[in-house]
Simulated scan of single mutants.
Amino acid sequence: MSKYLVLQTDFGLQDGAVSSMYGVAYGVSDEITVSDLTHGITPFNIFEGSFRLSQTVKYWEPGTVFVSVVDPGVGSKRLSIVAKLKSGHYVVTPDNGTLTHLAANYGIEAVRVLDETTQRLPGSEESSTFHGRDIYAYNGARLASGQVTFEELGTALDPNAIVQLPLNLPVVEDGAIEGNVDITDVNFGSLWSNISLEAFKELQVQLGDLIHVEVLHKGEQRYSGYLPYVHTFDDVKPGEPLVYIDSVYTVAFGVHTGSFAQQYNVGAGEDWSVKISKVN
């Protein structure tokens, strides 16, 4: 194991929840390093948590253990699982769709189901609403520290049986591409789609070309416009919209020193799609 434990939650930093997870992890072992992916996932937004994991995992060395807790079903019959990715990384999380993007982009080699009644922080048996501390951080630290192996963590589950959310993969048809708006660049309001750079190139676009962009919510058009495809934000004037390639190498839509999401009242997630075509 790498001895790295990386935490992601929708808890925010306004109270002691995240610090409690740190304390539990270091209580298991003071030889691991605990770090944060983010604790700013939109509350209950499993799809967003799934994306952020996929965005980040590959920049950590194989053997790193991720704990992701976006868990609106905490205390219910949903499973608590540990997944081993084909990349060699591990994820401890509820089985609620959090692994969706990882399954698509990395592949899942194996899954173990945790026993929530026995594989938990000693003394926490009466609590049912803080599994992030009592089950996920605790078992994540045990795995990262080498106190247990992956194979010792619970019973095997077929990776194909885990819960997955719809990804709405891109479709190229009649000179246009329709895909999903996966995420909002949270600090700056850009929309990041799941349309890869490779798929975008099928439109034979060049920097400076105009792109017709339609953003839809549940199939209903919420935005339509003609935007320039540019290299960087400074290639347009402040306040103007643009099409660019984001840091995960997908097609994105932004506004120079502004927020595309706010300016045009659009969003991201399973219900948001985008259709693009080159203007001839």
Results as ranks from 00 to 15, higher is better:
residue 22 Y to Q: 00
residue 107 G to Q: 06
residue 58 K to F: 12
residue 264 Y to L: 09
residue 220 E to L: 10
residue 82 V to H: 01
residue 267 G to Y: 02
residue 153 L to I: 11
residue 51 F to Q: 05
residue 172 V to L: 10
residue 270 E to P: 04
residue 55 Q to A: 15
residue 235 D to E: 12
residue 128 S to R: 12
residue 138 Y to V: 15
residue 62 P to L: 01
residue 212 H to N: 13
residue 162 I to C: 06
residue 104 A to F: 05
residue 85 L to A: 12
residue 104 A to R: 15
residue 121 L to V: 13
residue 16 G to Y: 09
residue 278 K to H: 06
residue 104 A to Q: 10
residue 110 A to D: 09
residue 105 N to S: 11
residue 41 I to T: 01
residue 78 R to V: 04
residue 148 V to Q: 02
residue 208 G to N: 08
residue 71 D to A: 02
residue 236 V to L: 12
residue 231 H to M: 08
residue 198 E to C: 07
residue 265 N to A: 13
residue 141 A to I: 02
residue 146 G to F: 00
residue 171 V to I: 15
residue 231 H to P: 03
residue 105 N to M: 10
residue 280 N to Y: 12
residue 205 V to I: 15
residue 271 D to F: 04
residue 229 Y to W: 14
residue 27 G to E: 06
residue 242 L to P: 02
residue 108 I to P: 01
residue 36 D to I: 04
residue 47 F to D: 01
residue 280 N to S: 13
residue 277 S to A: 11
residue 190 S to W: 08
residue 201 K to G: 03
residue 84 K to Y: 07
residue 48 E to C: 03
residue 196 S to C: 02
residue 106 Y to K: 00
residue 271 D to I: 00
residue 272 W to N: 02
residue 126 E to F: 14
residue 193 S to Q: 10
residue 178 E to T: 15
residue 56 T to L: 03
residue 110 A to R: 05
residue 118 T to R: 15
residue 69 V to M: 03
residue 179 G to W: 01
residue 266 V to W: 01
residue 185 D to A: 09
residue 13 L to H: 09
residue 113 V to K: 05
residue 16 G to M: 11
residue 201 K to F: 08
residue 75 G to W: 04
residue 184 T to Q: 10
residue 223 Y to C: 08
residue 63 G to M: 09
residue 224 S to T: 14
residue 277 S to N: 07
residue 128 S to E: 13
residue 253 F to T: 02
residue 130 F to C: 11
residue 245 I to A: 01
residue 38 T to K: 00
residue 166 P to F: 10
residue 128 S to A: 15
residue 52 R to G: 03
residue 103 A to M: 05
residue 122 P to I: 10
residue 184 T to H: 03
residue 194 N to P: 09
residue 209 D to A: 09
residue 267 G to S: 11
residue 130 F to I: 13
residue 205 V to K: 08
residue 160 N to C: 06
residue 118 T to F: 13
residue 109 E to I: 03
residue 237 K to E: 14
residue 35 S to Q: 11
residue 53 L to I: 11
residue 217 H to S: 14
residue 200 F to G: 00
residue 206 Q to K: 12
residue 86 K to Y: 07
residue 181 V to A: 07
residue 190 S to K: 13
residue 183 I to P: 01
residue 138 Y to C: 10
residue 119 Q to R: 09
residue 84 K to A: 11
residue 174 D to F: 05
residue 148 V to N: 00
residue 41 I to H: 04
residue 1 M to D: 11
residue 151 E to C: 04
residue 194 N to G: 11
residue 256 H to R: 15
residue 23 G to L: 01
residue 96 N to K: 07
residue 193 S to M: 10
residue 25 A to R: 06
residue 223 Y to F: 15
residue 30 D to S: 11
residue 174 D to Y: 04
residue 67 V to H: 06
residue 216 L to A: 14
residue 63 G to I: 10
residue 30 D to E: 12
residue 76 S to L: 05
residue 38 T to R: 01
residue 32 I to Y: 03
